[in-house]
Design a protein around this nucleic acid. Structure first.
Lengths: 174, 174
DNA sequence: ACCTGAACACCGTTCAAGT
DNA sequence: ACCTGAACACCGTTCAAGT
């Protein structure tokens, strides 16, 4: 006799997102997710292949969040600062979003705003390479900042702005 | 009655480094390390606080490797290409070395070559900010390249060289 | 002093049995 | 159809007992 569903894939991914932000990736266990959606761990396997797949779906959801935020930016410096504010406010989410676990489609969508602004700055021909430069720098800087890897003193805000100035100058001049 | 040691901290860290490169961070278990040094897992706790501490020691060893390699470079472009070659040859080692798990001292030592070349390029005043720009970009680019995050087509070598040209230009002009 | 077997808590995952 | 209890393999870690 059929039984009505007691949860859904969306609730599971949403629960995973919440647990990630409070307990980190290590706390994102099948048991924790199951408990939060009100089900026993084995039931999750009806909706999700395994933990890796679930983490990937959460990463996709985070990439969509990033896309939405970046779409509000109208210049590369604004975009970088928007990204930084979000990363500082959501460190665990940031690190999963940029861990390479999101799907190609999700990453493409999140890259679109950067690509658009880069095309406007350097032209279509160099847009992709410029977007990779900006993305790599920004992801690298924020990852290291959040990991506490910048420990040689100095002002981090200053270092961020220094880089932003030099980068925009480097991309503005052909 | 005293028993002669059957292993040492150095062997344990070396075993960890080897296992990392073949099986990745997930394969770097206390059991795998113990087996490789010829001891049972509980014995490791005589030399190492816990798995996290062991991973940190391996990260320190990797930072020292990075330092040695980067010290052979005599310009920023050469340094970046040296780093990239090493990262491609040692992907797991690279990602642990830049994960923020190494100690402050190890990170400072690994940063020294970059800082030195940046000081020669932009002067002492901006050396730290410039080093952070180069380091963040390079770490970000290689992390994303190794994670397969650059999937929008185009030539990755070209994107790397494009960034390197623009960055050196941006740092050369005051 | 160092090593080990036994034990515990915790995790991911499978599957037969329930409704 | 979906859910669960029981079970298994695997991991980190502790500790009393061995030498």
């Amino acid at each position: 006799m059929p039984t009505p569903s007691r949860t859904s894939l969306d609730s599971i991914v949403a629960a995973g997102r919440d647990i990630l932000s409070t307990d980190g990736l290590a706390g994102l266990t099948m048991q924790a997710v199951a408990q939060r959606v009100g089900v026993k761990p084995p039931s999750l396997y009806k909706r999700v292949q395994d933990r890796d797949a679930l983490v990937g779906l959460v990463a996709n959801a985070l990439a969509a969040e990033v896309e939405a935020i970046l779409n509000t930016a109208d210049s590369l410096p604004t975009l970088a600062r928007t990204m930084r504010d979000w990363a500082v406010a959501n460190p665990e989410a940031f690190s999963l979003a940029f861990s390479g676990r999101a799907s190609q489609e999700a990453m493409e969508a999140a890259s679109a705003p950067i690509l658009r602004l880069c095309a406007a700055t350097v032209g279509e021909r160099d847009a992709l390479a410029a977007a990779r430069l900006i993305t790599a720098w920004c992801a690298g800087f924020l990852t290291m900042e959040l990991a506490g890897a910048f420990r040689l003193g100095g002002d981090l805000d200053e270092s961020f702005d220094f880089a932003l100035e030099r980068l925009t100058a480097a991309l503005s001049v052909p």
